[in-house]
Design a protein around this nucleic acid. Sequence first.
DNA 1: AAAATTTTGAAACAAGTGTTTTAAAAAGAA
DNA 2: TTCTTTTTAAAACACTTGTTTCAAAATTTT
Lengths: 192, 192
Amino acid sequence: MARLVAFNEEQAVQKAMEVFWRKGYTATSMRDLTDAMQINSSSLYNTIGDKQELFKRCLHRYTNERMEEMEVRYKSPKSPLKALELYINDAVHIITTDPNSCLCLKATFEIEGDVPEIQAVINSYDHYRHRLLTHLLKSAQDLGEIPDDEKPEVIADYLGSIFVGWYNSLVLHKDKSKIVRMADLVKRQLKR
Amino acid sequence: MARLVAFNEEQAVQKAMEVFWRKGYTATSMRDLTDAMQINSSSLYNTIGDKQELFKRCLHRYTNERMEEMEVRYKSPKSPLKALELYINDAVHIITTDPNSCLCLKATFEIEGDVPEIQAVINSYDHYRHRLLTHLLKSAQDLGEIPDDEKPEVIADYLGSIFVGWYNSLVLHKDKSKIVRMADLVKRQLKR
DNA sequence: AAAATTTTGAAACAAGTGTTTTAAAAAGAA
DNA sequence: TTCTTTTTAAAACACTTGTTTCAAAATTTT
């Protein structure tokens, strides 16, 4: 054995993620990244790899963090409807208080399928969320908490789409009340 | 007087727009642009200006084109509800057949308010669409074609948000049927 | 303590970035 | 035709890009 890596990789990736999240993939330079991570580029290439590999790691970190939160917060609730309403309220809160719009969303529109490996990370996150929502919706239907005349899978897709639009709305209008009103509308729609 | 400009500015901006639309603002280089526009960079800087000015021109072209189409297609219909349903069907068609997702959307998530002049162009487009939808919704309510228990302004915001999500969904899943099913759901929701 | 192995910092790399310069070509006005 | 004004092409501009090189520093094993 010999010399050990001096920097904390987790912390460094976290710092890189924050820069990518703020500036986007292309507009972030390697200098921006090494400055924020406080490591030399040789160390970066030695441990993690190139810019794209680092971005993938950042995306993984971003999505894993969020999936773990979801796992504890919405799994096996007494009332699935209450969990769904909580989910919607959380979405409003995250969208209106996070410093930037969703990292995955920005990456999706920036990359648009040009880098399959990056798309795959985002897809698996999207799929997790879709499964979670579908499960809650189906349970709520089975319990008679919401009508069962629409397919849970379609409502899940539709909810996912709405949240994407809320991010866009906030960037354009910086008006939280718009999001809140839409959320109220969605919660009403869910039950009828 | 002296020598005239040799290239067609409209055509050149159209070509530039196509490149920006495909690659995004940052990832598009001036070389990419002058190659596509088939003009020298000195001519470009002489007539239009720098990269940002050119991008603004492209955005204007993109949004004006779409607003003019809307103006003729959805204005003063016999049935506002039919116009709304047409609007939704058109959205499905555009989203699933255009070569890239919306230029404004990509720019919004890429720029995120960092360039107010660019935001302003997108905002005015968004505002035009919002006014159009609100007007149709209000008319439909007044005629009793749809229930009037939700505010037209909020439904308009909500519809706008959904369309944004559809763009995202298509990039991620490349599955038109998902969009079609959501559109059917939305059309049903409108009427109840 | 010496040897072996790896990380690190600083500099260098070539290629690409947005933009400007310069002189020649073009064309209306005199 | 000549003068005047403007556009154009090609090259150059200084700077930034992502990535690599290389010797010096660091640390574990012998």
